Simulated scan of single mutants.
Amino acid sequence: MRDEVTLSDTAAPRYSATLNRVETYFDQTATRTWERLTSDAPVSKIRQTVRAGRDRMRNLMLSRLPADLTGARVLDAGCGAGQMTIELAKRGAEVLATDISPALVQIAEDRLPQEYRRQVTFTSGDMLCASLGRFDYVLAMDSLIYYDAEDIARALHGLEHRTDGRIVFTVAPRTRALMAMWYAGKLFPRSDRSPVMIPHDAGKLAIAAQNQGVIGSVRPVDRISSGFYISQLMEVQT
Rank of each mutant, 00 (worst) to 15 (best):
M1W: 09
R2G: 14
V5T: 04
T6K: 15
T6N: 14
L7C: 14
L7S: 09
S8V: 10
R14W: 09
S16R: 08
S16I: 12
T18E: 11
L19S: 13
N20G: 15
R21I: 02
T24F: 15
Q28V: 14
A30T: 02
A30I: 10
T31E: 04
R32I: 06
W34K: 02
W34M: 11
P42Y: 09
S44C: 02
K45L: 15
T49K: 00
A52I: 00
M57Y: 02
R58C: 06
N59E: 10
L60R: 07
M61Q: 05
S63R: 07
R64D: 13
L65D: 00
L65H: 01
P66L: 07
D68Y: 04
L69M: 12
V74I: 07
V74Y: 07
L75A: 02
G78S: 07
G80F: 06
G82I: 00
M84V: 10
E87H: 01
A89P: 00
K90G: 08
G92S: 11
A93I: 03
V95H: 04
V95T: 02
L96H: 12
L96R: 07
L96M: 14
A97E: 00
A97F: 09
T98S: 11
T98D: 11
D99N: 08
D99W: 01
I100S: 01
P102W: 08
P102I: 13
L104F: 11
L104N: 00
D110F: 12
R111V: 05
Y116C: 03
R117E: 07
R118F: 12
V120S: 01
V120T: 01
T121S: 15
F122V: 04
T123W: 00
S124H: 12
D126C: 02
D136E: 07
Y137C: 03
V138K: 06
V138I: 11
L144K: 00
L144F: 04
I145C: 05
Y146K: 10
D148I: 05
E150L: 12
D151V: 06
R154S: 15
H157Q: 12
L159I: 09
V171D: 03
V171S: 04
A184T: 09
G185K: 00
G185H: 02
K186H: 11
P189I: 01
P195R: 00
P195V: 01
V196N: 05
A202H: 00
G203P: 05
G203K: 09
G203I: 01
A208Q: 08
A209W: 01
G213T: 14
I215T: 15
G216E: 05
V221L: 12
D222A: 13
R223H: 13
F228Q: 12
Y229V: 04
I230T: 12
Q232G: 03
L233H: 02
E235D: 15
V236T: 00
Q237I: 15
T238W: 08
